[in-house]
Design a protein around this nucleic acid. Structure first.
Lengths: 345, 345
DNA sequence: TTGTATGCGTTATCAG
DNA sequence: CTGATAACGCATACAA
C-alpha cells in the first residue's frame, strides 16, 4: 500500500546524499551533530523504517536464526525455544521455527531451506530417526554455525548444550534404591539417541554400585507414549519376580505405567515406586504427584543462545567447539517417596 | 567460509548470461530445454543455493511471517503455532516467533521490528494489557496483512480466527445445570479480553435461559493461575449460599479450585461439579479428569494460515476481512459427570 | 531463445 | 564532514 520510505526519500527532502543519511542513522562514522539530529528527526517524521532485508543482503547477515525440533508444541521444546527467543531478541535476532516430526528427511529439508534464507545460525535437537550427519556437516561447510541442544550427535566443530543424562539416570535410580527398592525396572527410550542411552547407562551404573543385579528382562524399550508405559507393565508382570520400582525415561510412559499399576490394585509408592523424566507439567498436578527429572529447558535455551552469540563474536574462521553440560534436578514427589504421608492434593 | 556460489558463477562457467541462468532456475519463461537442463545440472554440481534474501529484496516478498503470542511455551499457543507452521511450510514460508509476555509495550516493539524485516504477514493473539490498537493500524497502513487468532481486537480490515467462546460458556454451564447444579459460580478472566467476556456472557445467558439467578457474588475475577483458583474458592465459601458448581474460564484456576475444594473435604462431582477451559494436557491425565473446553488450537492455526494465504492470493489492494469462528468442543469428564462411577485412572 | 542493463535499499570505499 | 559510486544476488523489461 503506502510506499515504503527509503533513505533516498530522506536525502532528497533534505538535499543531502543518501550516504549521509545512512551514516546518520547508524551514527557510527563521524558526522556533524546537527545533520545527524536533523536526519533522525525527519526520519521519524516521515515514518522511515530501515529495510533489514537490504541491510542483510549487503552485510551477509540476516539476523535470523533457525530452531529445528521434532514438534514445537511439546512442553520441553517450546520451553527451550522460549529461552532462545528471550536471550536472542535483545541482540536483534529473530527466531524461525521448524519441525521435523521426528523424520530424518524433513530434517534435511529444513536445514537446506534455512541455509537458503541466509540464516545466521541453527539450533537443533535431532530427530529420532536421524542416523547420518551428512546434512549437518554440509551446513557447517556452508559456514552456518550450529548448536545442538538436548539431542545431539557427535559432529566435529559443533557446540552442544545438554543435561547430564547419565547423572540423572543415576540419581533417579539411587533415590529409588534409597526407598528400599531392589528390583528396579527401566522403561527406556530409543537408544539411537544419546539421551536415552545415557539415562540407561546411569541406571545400570547405579544398580552396579549398589550390588544389584542388572537384569535385561527389566529393561523395556518404549516410545514415550502413555500406552507404551501400560504395555511395558503388562510385559514386566509376566516375569516371575515382579519389579518393586520403575524408572522411566519419559513422563508419559511413567504415567501409563502408573495407570496400569493402579488398575492392578497396587499402591504407589507403598508397593512400588515410580519415577519419570522431563518434569512435564502434569506430573506436578496429579493427585499422586510423579517424581521426575527437570531438564531446565528454558535455561538450556538461554545457554544455547549464549554459546551461539559467543561463536558469532569470535573471528568466525575458527569454529570453536563448546560442550555445555547442565546439571539435571531430580524432583522427588509422592510417587517415589515413602517417607511422607500422602496428602490428597 | 566457502564462498557462496551465485548465478554469476554459473553463468561464467557456462559462458552464458546470468539472466539466462536465472530464467533456467525459475523455469517459467521460455527457455531451451537443453540449456535449462545444463544449468540445473551444473547448479547442482557447483552446490548452488539460491539466496532468498536477494530474491526477497528484489520481489519485496520475504516469505517470512511473524507470530506474536504472550508466551510460546503455553500449550495452547505452541499448538496454534504448530498448526500455522505445518500449513505454511509447504508454501515456502518460514515462521518467526515473538513473545510479548502479556506486555503491551513489548507487543508494539515486536510488531515494529517485524515490519522492519519486511515480514509478509503477522499472526497474533493480543496481550492482556493491550487496550489501544494504534500499533496494529500502523502495521496495516504499512501494508502488512494481519490475522488475529483467539484473542482479537476490533480493527477494521483485520481477519480473525477464534472459537465461539459464548457458545462454549453456554454449553459448559448448560451441562452443569444438567447435572442438577443450581448455584453455579464463574471464575472469570480479564474481561478486557473478548474471549473472557464472551465466556462470561455465555455463562449468564445459560443461567437466564434456565431461570437461574445471576448473582454477581458468584462471579470471581481470576488471573489464570492455580493459586487464583484456590483463593477464589476461599472467597466463595464466605458466602451464605455456597455454590454447587464451578465454571472456570481457565484450566489452571479450575485445578486450583479443585485442590482447595478437596482440602475442604468436598467430593467432586458429588458435592460440587467443576469445569475448566482450554483442554490443557493435565486435565486429561488427572486421577480425577477435569471437564473442559477444547479450542482445537492446531486447527485454529491451520485456518489462520489459510486465511492469510487467501489474502495473499487476492490482489492485495483490497483488504478483505474474514471472520472465522470455530466451534469449541465441550469435553465432559469426571469432574462434572455424576452419572458415571469414578474409576481410578 | 538469449543477452544487456537496471534496480530492489543499504552500506562501504573512495574522493573531495 | 560529506558526496558520488559500486556492490550485495537476483529478476525483469527491453533489445537483439
Amino acid at each position: 500500500m503506502k510506499d515504503k520510505v527509503t533513505i533516498y526519500d530522506i536525502s532528497k527532502k533534505l538535499n543531502i546524499s543518501a550516504a549521509t543519511v545512512s551514516r546518520a542513522l547508524n551514527n557510527n562514522t563521524k558526522i556533524s551533530l546537527s545533520t545527524r539530529e536533523l536526519v533522525l528527526k525527519t526520519a521519524k517524521e516521515m515514518n522511515y523504517k530501515q529495510n533489514r532485508l537490504a541491510q542483510a543482503l549487503k552485510s551477509g547477515k540476516s539476523n535470523n536464526v533457525g530452531v529445528i525440533v521434532p514438534y514445537i508444541n511439546r512442553s520441553f521444546f517450546s520451553s527451550v525455544i522460549r529461552g532462545i527467543e528471550e536471550e536472542l531478541t535483545p541482540h536483534g535476532y529473530h527466531v524461525i521455527i521448524c519441525q521435523t516430526h521426528e523424520n530424518y528427511k524433513n530434517e534435511i529439508e529444513q536445514i537446506n531451506t534455512l541455509i537458503n534464507t541466509q540464516i545466521d545460525g541453527i539450533f537443533m535437537s535431532v530427530s529420532k530417526t536421524t542416523i547420518n550427519t551428512e546434512h549437518i556437516e554440509k551446513a557447517l561447510a556452508e559456514g552456518t554455525p550450529l548448536v545442538f541442544f538436548d539431542r545431539k550427535k557427535e559432529v566435529p566443530g559443533v557446540s552442544s548444550v545438554i543435561i547430564d543424562d547419565f547423572k540423572a539416570g543415576y540419581l533417579a535410580t539411587q533415590q529409588l534404591i534409597g526407598q528400599g527398592c531392589k528390583r528396579i525396572a527401566h522403561l527406556s527410550g530409543d537408544l539411537n539417541l544419546e539421551i536415552y542411552k545415557n539415562r540407561h547407562d546411569g541406571y545400570t551404573k547405579a544398580l552396579e554400585d549398589n550390588n544389584l543385579e542388572v537384569d535385561s528382562n527389566y529393561i523395556i524399550k518404549t516410545n514415550s507414549k502413555i500406552e507404551s508405559g501400560a504395555s511395558a507393565i503388562e510385559e514386566l508382570w509376566k516375569l516371575k519376580k515382579k519389579p518393586d520400582a520403575i524408572f522411566s525415561a519419559s513422563d508419559y510412559t511413567a504415567l501409563g505405567a502408573i495407570q496400569e499399576l493402579k488398575k492392578m490394585g497396587l499402591k504407589i509408592p507403598k508397593d512400588i515406586c515410580v519415577t519419570g523424566f522431563s518434569n512435564e507439567p502434569f506430573t506436578k498436578y496429579m493427585e499422586l504427584p510423579i517424581s521426575t527429572v527437570d531438564q531446565t529447558p528454558q535455561t538450556m535455551g538461554k545457554i544455547a543462545a549464549q554459546v551461539f552469540l559467543e561463536q558469532m563474536g569470535e573471528n568466525k574462521k575458527v569454529s570453536i567447539e563448546k560442550k555445555v553440560v547442565l546439571t539435571p534436578e531430580l524432583i522427588i514427589r509422592e510417587s517415589s517417596n515413602r517417607s511422607i504421608k500422602p496428602v490428597s492434593a
